[in-house]
């Protein structure tokens, strides 16, 4: 645990222990652990002198942060107005069936997390699905299986 603590402290010293760098520090923690562990948040709170509850407030406000462990691969299905009209909910259902998890959950083996998003700003190519940062345009239910296969064949 001490090594962990040193690692977290290094993120904080990188930003000169400044309170305003809270989000940057949380981003680094999120990248490292794939979520924000309770212990780490407590260390950050002590080092920056920000009450823990305020850090939790920030961490729960932004979708980029998660307080529970996320899967190795993040699948985001857009349910914005344009994608919704073009069948986004049905595509989400298909993903839920294929991965056997509900939206917002992580699969038991810790491989996949399925999330929804309100709009990604590229409505012209909707319905959109983002898998680990790769955008997939004009998805149909039929394409869901092949996309999953293509993406995770390498492993």
């Amino acid at each position: 645990m001490e090594a962990e603590e040193l690692k977290v402290k290094s993120y904080i010293t990188k930003y000169n222990n400044e309170k305003k760098a809270l989000i940057s520090i949380l981003q680094e923690v999120q990248e490292e652990y794939n979520y924000l562990p309770q212990e780490v948040l407590k260390i950050v709170s002590k080092a920056l002198g920000i009450p823990l509850i305020d850090i939790i407030g920030v961490a729960t406000f932004y979708r980029a942060f998660s307080l529970e462990p996320r899967g190795k691969h993040l699948i985001t299905v857009c349910l914005g107005t344009a994608c919704h009209v073009r069948g986004g909910p049905k595509i989400l259902e298909e993903f839920e069936r294929k991965l056997n998890i509900d939206a917002g959950e992580t699969s038991k083996d810790g491989q996949f997390s399925l999330e929804t998003v309100a709009c990604l700003g590229c409505c012209a190519i909707g319905p959109v699905v983002v898998i680990d940062g790769d955008y997939h345009a004009q998805i149909t239910i039929r394409k869901v299986g092949s996309i999953l296969k293509k993406h995770f064949k390498k492993e």
Binding site: P51, L52, I53, D54, I56, G57, T60, F61
Partner: peptide, 8 residues
């Protein structure tokens, strides 16, 4: 500072 707003 024991309680605060969470989520949105």
């Amino acid at each position: 500072r024991a309680i605060g707003f969470q989520n949105r």
